[in-house]
Simulated assay, not measured.
Amino acid sequence: MQPSAILETALYVTDLDAAEAFYADVIGLERIAKVLGRHVFFRCGQGVLLLFNAEATRHAPKPDAKLPVPPHGTTGPGHVCFAATPAELDQWKSRLDGMGIAIEADFEWSQGGRSIYVRDPSGNSIEFAEPKIWGL
């Protein structure tokens, strides 16, 4: 057996409001769920991007919790990569530059394909890349 896709990806943030604004207003993702102070979730294509306040997810659920999700979380910057065509990469670069968001890196991979990198308000590494960097 082998999974067919990644359904959700989680990033942990230090300022949930700033992260929500970044992913909604800058990246343009659609909010699909939110619990104040704990998390905000976004639709991204066929998957979901989960943004968690790491402090709020490190504790075991209460015995009477409706959803007994085990504790999770991390410290330090994480990473997520959004798929983009070559034309979209140019559009992303223009959009991000126009919003005053520094492009940390912009390069061609030796196996083919281009990536650009920025940081979200919590310091997570956000990449936009052509799927062919992974042979897709």
Results as ranks from 00 to 15, higher is better:
3 P>Y: 15
9 T>Q: 02
9 T>R: 00
13 V>P: 10
15 D>C: 06
16 L>Y: 11
19 A>D: 12
20 E>D: 10
21 A>R: 11
21 A>C: 07
22 F>P: 02
22 F>T: 02
25 D>Y: 07
28 G>H: 02
28 G>L: 00
33 A>S: 07
44 C>Q: 13
46 Q>E: 15
46 Q>G: 13
48 V>C: 07
49 L>A: 01
56 A>E: 13
59 H>G: 03
60 A>Y: 06
63 P>T: 06
66 K>A: 14
68 P>N: 07
68 P>A: 09
69 V>Y: 13
73 G>W: 03
74 T>W: 15
76 G>Y: 02
77 P>V: 03
80 V>Y: 02
90 D>Q: 15
93 K>L: 10
95 R>Y: 09
96 L>R: 10
97 D>H: 08
99 M>V: 00
104 E>H: 06
106 D>P: 01
107 F>G: 06
110 S>I: 07
111 Q>N: 14
111 Q>A: 11
112 G>Y: 13
112 G>R: 13
112 G>T: 08
114 R>G: 01
116 I>S: 00
116 I>Y: 01
117 Y>V: 00
117 Y>W: 01
118 V>S: 04
121 P>S: 02
122 S>E: 11
122 S>C: 04
123 G>Q: 10
124 N>E: 13
124 N>A: 11
124 N>I: 04
128 F>C: 00
128 F>D: 01
129 A>N: 13
132 K>F: 14
